[in-house]
């Protein structure tokens, strides 16, 4: 873990603040609202599943929590840091893993991970082990251009493994994956949850409901309050 990250964690404004806290968070693209007055509280260490049809606002919600987007109205915080003024601190603690894997096609899988390590100030000596963990050792030195969608997603999972973020956000991570690749994603989710990190998983896939302690439903940019209370007790 880097000194910068340790230093940031020591500066948590309130160590007991929830992982995610949104109050009336609204996001509008042009005139179209993608997220409408969302109130949400996710405790540290929770694994939360978000379900809903296409266009329900799941991706917008995750991108807002990751600070890729700012709320048009309303406010929110992640680990006590404001979504707008505390963006850099939130980004140190958060990894967004989506169906777009954010890889460079003309770099190899290993080179992509080493670049990510350099950006995040991490040592790159764990790259080989991370690729081995997701079953990509044999293809580590091939260009991403030649990878299948499943292999790309495995590299993205390896990046999340290297970073070990406090908050892991997964946006439709199973899209276009075969069963073996889905298992790799599932394993990453279970490991993060097992280590007490917070996970928010948005997916259509009903088979993934068993991994979450809580399931939220979204439709037309809104969290559906009558279904929010569906909780499963651990064990």
């Amino acid at each position: 873990m880097t000194d910068a990250l340790l230093s940031d964690r020591r500066m948590d404004p309130e160590p007991n603040t929830p992982a995610v806290l949104l109050a009336g968070a609204t996001r509008v693209f042009g005139v179209a609202p993608a997220l409408v007055r969302v109130d949400l509280r996710i405790e540290r260490g929770e694994t939360v599943l978000i379900r809903g049809p296409n266009g329900a606002g799941k991706s917008t919600l995750l991108r807002l929590i990751a600070t890729a987007l700012s709320p048009t109205y309303g406010s929110g915080s992640v680990f006590g840091f404001d979504l707008v003024t505390g963006r850099d601190k939130i980004r140190r603690r958060t990894e967004l893993l989506g169906h777009r894997t954010r890889l460079y096609e003309d770099l190899t899988g290993a080179e992509n991970l080493r670049f990510a390590c350099a950006l995040y100030g991490l040592a790159s000596d764990g790259v080989g082990a991370a690729l081995e963990h997701v079953g990509l050792t044999g293809a580590a030195d091939e260009r991403v251009r030649a990878y299948s969608q499943g292999m790309r997603q495995r590299v993205a999972v390896a990046r999340a493994i290297l970073r070990r973020p406090e908050l892991l956000l997964l946006d439709e991570p199973y899209a276009g994956l075969d069963e073996a690749a889905k298992d790799v994603v599932d394993q990453a989710v279970r490991e993060a949850g097992g280590e007490g990190r917070t996970v928010v998983l948005a997916t259509h896939d009903p088979a993934r409901g068993g991994m979450a302690g809580r399931t939220l439903f979204m439709d037309q940019g809104r969290l559906l309050p009558e279904l929010v209370a569906e909780r499963r007790e651990p064990g």
């Binding site: 990751a66 600070t67 980004r91 967004l96 954010r102 096609e105 003309d106 950006l119």
Partner: peptide
């Protein structure tokens, strides 16, 4: 172009740099 191919620019945005 290389930043837009697979959403890499968002990766740069979200990196704490």
């Amino acid at each position: 172009e290389s930043e837009g191919e697979d959403g890499a620019l968002e990766g740069l945005l979200l990196a704490p740099m």
